[in-house]
Design a protein around this nucleic acid. Structure first.
Lengths: 341, 341
DNA sequence: CTGTTAGCGCCTTCAT
DNA sequence: ATGAAGGCGCTAACAG
């Protein structure tokens, strides 16, 4: 009894059926559903009754094809799992939904060529616009975006030359500011633990910011003060221990990833090291966790939610008719000084 | 210069253009793209060349309309932000993508009527199936699902009567097992902190499991041992302090939400209370965090990733032709005994 | 305000 | 193995 590939369900009633049962033309049904104000009270009621009677759900696939308009936005993030992105996605989702749009989501796993495959796939689905959490793209992606002309928002970093619109903070400035902050507090031997640098403009920028600040502080830019670690609690702990082994005089460590910082903090607790007495710890991104840990952790507050919200708002405006113009919004960041430094 | 609503971009080349340039019929292009093996080598090469030359992206909207088949799965979660769901979503996304499907995601914010609106919207988009992180639905949702006949997977709890397929663990059994575990360890005055119970079958079930275990342990089912708290670190800390105020002899607290447990743990650290010396702490869901905190936290390991993976696999099989049959998969759970109890 | 006509871009079906 | 005809369900554009 198996049967072939499942057809997409639906009750199989279409607009013309509703029209027939309501005694009107299909066009009137269409209008009653999409722009009720253009239809007379009487017609509208007949239509509504028939729609309810059959639980009619308009086929938006057909609608999109016909109108050449879609209400689905495509989103590509490096990882869905990561709570930082999740925060942004939530905001995007909320704004889109409030405006009648939907979200198609995909994750690229940090690979540029995967991004290309996903951009193609989403454009084949005829999404009406794209959000990319990434500001370096391969040529094909840039070409596709240019060619299709869909509105695009890039986030995650501030590109010097956005594809279209960009909403982000500057990873460079943020890392620089935190490093400077640590210098101002009197720390002289400041380690830096970065997330993987490969194919990741954000990580690169953060490291650049760190070195720039060191220079401005008149501190030596010692490359052995920098360690690369994949995200994770253990990795943060390891990194701190290795740094301290190399530099027993290390007095502060700046982690370019919140989970790394917390891992290091836990390791200190385990060893009974005072933070910041033995070593100060600073983090990147304001996870709730950091505000509640003991000690509370100094960090950079990045308005992830705002990034999502404003990205979606820009798209919605554009989709609703705003004229295309390159936009580059810097949402900034904030240093949150807490007990750990 | 403003211009009307933005049309969905696309390079405006369609299959017939490719066909013309390749010197074949549109049908051959269609076949060369979808089932290359049914087309001769020569034709295929001509088509491929034209496709590449124009960077042609087939219009899947048109394809879906015509074939009555969609490759988009709809997913509704209570919250995108929550990392537990994020874990599951990631797994779903991965499996779907590996099989050529896409994911449309929406969040219901725990409201049944919002779920209805989203189910309608997703079905209007003609998603080929649904994943619902929720097992109690209002009538309209049940009707729509029945009527359209799309495959549905429910997760988040094990429904006694699934709409279609279900993949989950039992919240009841999990909470019961942890409470029993605490009893076995010798704790006699075990508090329980639950997430909001309203419209949330998962929370209800957990509480039921807790009380059942107390009874089985021969301990009094004292309702003042139960506190309801919205998720959050501070809320967990508060809840523990209130419990201890009411029951100075409290020797263990079981938090039906990981963040609550960690919040309580931090509060203990802050007060210099030994955990489990002063009070033992148990959690629900195996956040990485719990394995690294000091002390490490006893918890229930729920295979969120597996839930997502198996859900998606079930759907994919069905979409690829497996015959419809009600499935109810219990992925189980595991008690992870650590230092905090 | 309502209806008619003619596609949207592709795929199913049937013929060759 | 390839092509021609017709239609998926809806909406734009125009007519009344």
């Amino acid at each position: 009894m198996s049967g072939k590939a499942k057809r997409n369900g639906s009750a199989d009633i279409k607009m013309s059926d509703i029209a027939r049962h309501a005694g009107v033309s299909p066009m009137t049904v269409s209008r009653a559903l999409r722009e009720p104000s253009t239809v007379s009270e009487k017609m509208r009621r007949k239509v509504d009754a028939a729609v309810r009677e059959f639980s009619y759900l308009p086929n938006r696939i057909a609608g999109s094809l016909s109108s050449k308009r879609s209400n689905v936005v495509g989103l590509i993030v490096p990882s869905i799992r990561n709570s930082l992105y999740a925060n942004m996605v939530q905001a995007i989702s909320d704004v889109l939904r409030a405006n009648g749009f939907h979200l198609m989501i995909a994750n690229s796993g940090h690979l540029l060529d995967d991004e290309e495959a996903l951009v193609s796939a989403l454009l084949a689905q005829r999404v009406c616009s794209l959000v990319l959490h990434n500001t370096t793209h391969n040529k094909r992606v840039r070409d596709l975006v240019a060619k299709t002309g869909v509105p695009v928002v890039e986030t995650g970093n501030l590109p010097t030359e956005p594809l279209d619109m960009a909403v982000s903070y500057s990873n460079f400035e943020a890392a620089r500011a935190m490093t400077a902050h640590l210098g101002r507090l009197g720390y002289r031997k400041i380690g830096f633990v970065t997330l993987p640098l490969r194919d990741n403009d954000r990580s690169e920028e953060r490291r650049r910011g760190y070195f720039t600040a060191l220079k401005e502080l008149g501190l030596p830019a010692d490359p052995t003060l920098v360690l690369e670690a994949p995200g994770g609690f253990s990795e943060g702990a390891d990194a701190l221990m290795r740094l301290i082994q190399i530099h027993p005089g290390l007095d502060a460590a700046f982690f370019a990833g919140d989970v790394l910082a917390v891992g290091a903090l836990f390791e200190c607790q385990r060893r009974g090291w005072a933070v910041p007495g033995r070593v100060a710890i600073a983090s990147f991104d304001d996870l709730d966790l950091l505000r509640h840990a003991v000690p509370t952790v100094t960090t950079l507050r990045i308005p992830r939610h705002e990034i999502g919200r404003r990205s979606a708002e820009l798209l919605v405006n554009r989709l609703l008719g705003a004229s295309p113009e390159r936009v580059r919004i810097d949402v900034g960041f904030e240093i949150v000084q807490r007990e750990s430094t």
